[in-house]
């Protein structure tokens, strides 16, 4: 036999002990007449009792309860100390501390790099030094390569000087 569909919600509320006291007399009257609802109610109650009875009833032993309580209190104490320390940090709100730390790191980094820039010579200057040294080297190489020519030119210059002085006749008169 099936329960009445109209009384389904009332039946479930009754089984769960949630039926309003005003609705109870009418419901009990209905149960007296309706075999289907009565059977359904019995089955549901048996189901809940079975489920409840089959599960263990958990509980902390005295030792476990004491250990748990002392552990919670100890951890709370540690947390409260930490919170006090954080709150007392120059009166700055906690959420601003990471931002302040980041800003300080940036300032230090910029300061460091700018100081470093003042101490070291500029790269342009060193480049010009290198260029002048290279030019000297190129000149020296030119001199070495044209050394023979220069020696010849030196000989010619001496010859011209001798001729100009008139020590040597330019030509001999044929007999």
């Amino acid at each position: 036999m099936k329960p009445c569909p109209d009384h389904k919600e009332t039946l479930w509320l009754d089984v769960y002990g949630e039926l309003h006291p005003n609705e109870r007399p009418a419901w009990e009257k209905h149960l007296e007449k309706c075999e289907g609802c009565c059977q359904e109610r019995k089955q549901l109650l048996r189901l809940l009792q079975t489920v409840k009875a089959s599960m263990p009833s958990p509980g902390l032993s005295r030792e476990e309860a004491g250990a748990l309580a002392s552990s919670i209190i100890r951890k709370l104490g540690v947390e409260r100390k930490e919170m006090w320390w954080r709150k007392g940090l120059f009166g700055v709100p906690n959420r601003l501390i990471p931002a302040l730390a980041a800003a300080s790191i940036l300032i230090v980094a910029f300061g460091w790099f700018s100081m470093k820039g003042l101490r070291t010579p500029s790269p342009m200057r060193s480049n010009s030094n290198i260029q002048s040294e290279e030019q000297i080297l190129v000149k020296d190489l030119d001199i070495i390569e044209n050394l023979e020519l220069l020696e010849e030119m030196d000989t010619l210059q001496k010859l011209v000087q001798v001729v100009d002085r008139g020590d040597v006749p330019l030509y001999t008169k044929p007999n």
């Binding site: 009833s57 958990p58 509980g59 902390l60 309860a65 748990l68 309580a69 919670i72």
Partner: peptide, 11 residues
């Protein structure tokens, strides 16, 4: 607070 609620919370 802990002793009042720990059994229920544990359950």
């Amino acid at each position: 607070f802990i002793s009042r609620y720990q059994q229920k919370a544990y359950a």
